[in-house]
Design a protein around this nucleic acid. Structure first.
Lengths: 193, 193
DNA sequence: CGCGACGTTGATTTGCCTCAACGATTGTGG
DNA sequence: CCACAATCGTTGAGGCAAATCAACGTCGCG
């Protein structure tokens, strides 16, 4: 059962008791997502926290020239959500779609709020979850303001070995904030070393 | 009393009852910090969440060439902490020091954990706090990977009107990830418009 | 007064983008 | 299963964004 993967994920933070497991299980929905299928589009309100059982997603903006800028990748055992839209119930400026066929488990806003209100553990777990993501983002910012593209690329390969070989270079370039052409040149230079 | 500023800050998230106010008040420490005084240095373990009553701080790394890269500014009614070091009790790679003479209120790791364990409200409040900071960082990342320095500078001025005129341009440049010389040229171009 | 931090300007170099073109691969509809 | 389109990775020429280095004036402060 796919729900077990979610339960295991939670138990890595704080073990859940029987009641909490039942409550959680009753409040989530499992979905199967095809490649290129959206789970969030611009101007929608993001109403779900999405846990990824298997597969791979990208979260991105599209600028006025139609160019994608990737804010996050997320793969199995990770969460993806436009937190700004989710908590403030405002229109999102982001898209989220599947890079691979995926299986996800979603919890919507009202159900998550119910868990937060009735079981302290979830408040705690989601605090720790977001703290960890915050730390990742801090590191990414530091990379961006202090390193050149080649270093950022190398760092990306080291930090995400399990997803980097599932991604076309176009998407990695978009995540790093450079053009695919320039990434290609970086790869050429690296391979000659 | 400066503690009231902290209590007001919390009540913006969730009102505290009498008991919680007393518990919180007994577990924090007020300090006065001079200009250029450190509250965190590289290789220290960050043992405090710091609330800023008044003043202004910067949090930054120093690279191998001795150049500072500023990760965050924080001023009155804001928090500053190396969360990675704080929660994982590992050596920090960051510095935090005062840009202006400041008054702060600190809560150390064990006292914050006590509050988290005994009062759900604090778990909740710190979750929301970090969620908001996470959203800010997401926006900054998007800026960095999709905009040129001039736009990022303009955006910074709009987003932080209350601190940008208290900062020398050297520090703003460091925050934006550009050199002071280039920021000067950007400012020259803008002023001619 | 003299020093250090700050802001600016100019000349030069480097990092990265733009645009165009090409082959290889993948996916898809007939 | 083939044919064709779309996506992908690469290369090269040229241009722009930003860094580097050096120099200089100003200001605040000990």
């Amino acid at each position: 059962m796919n729900i077990n993967k979610l339960l295991t994920h939670f138990s890595n933070y704080i073990p859940l008791n029987e009641e909490e497991i039942i409550e959680l299980s009753n409040r989530v929905v499992e979905r199967s997502i095809k490649r290129k299928q959206f789970i969030l589009q611009k101007n929608d309100i993001c109403n779900n926290y999405t846990f990824i059982v298997s597969g791979l997603f990208k979260m991105y903006t599209v600028d006025k020239n139609g160019v994608e800028h990737i804010l996050h990748f997320a793969s199995e055992n990770d969460w993806i959500c436009d937190i700004n839209s989710f908590h403030n119930k405002k229109q999102s400026s982001l898209y989220i779609d599947a890079i691979e066929p995926s299986i996800i488990i979603q919890i919507d806003n009202s159900n998550l709020m119910y868990l937060f209100t009735h079981y302290q553990k979830f408040d705690r777990t989601f605090r720790v979850l977001i703290e960890n993501k915050f730390i990742e983002l801090e590191n990414r910012i530091l990379q961006n303001i202090s390193s050149k593209a080649e270093e950022r690329y190398q760092f990306f390969l080291e930090q995400y070995p399990n997803i980097c070989n599932r991604l076309p270079n176009v998407l990695i370039a978009s995540y790093l904030g450079i053009t695919p052409e320039f990434l290609s040149k970086i790869r050429n230079i690296i391979s000659k070393k």
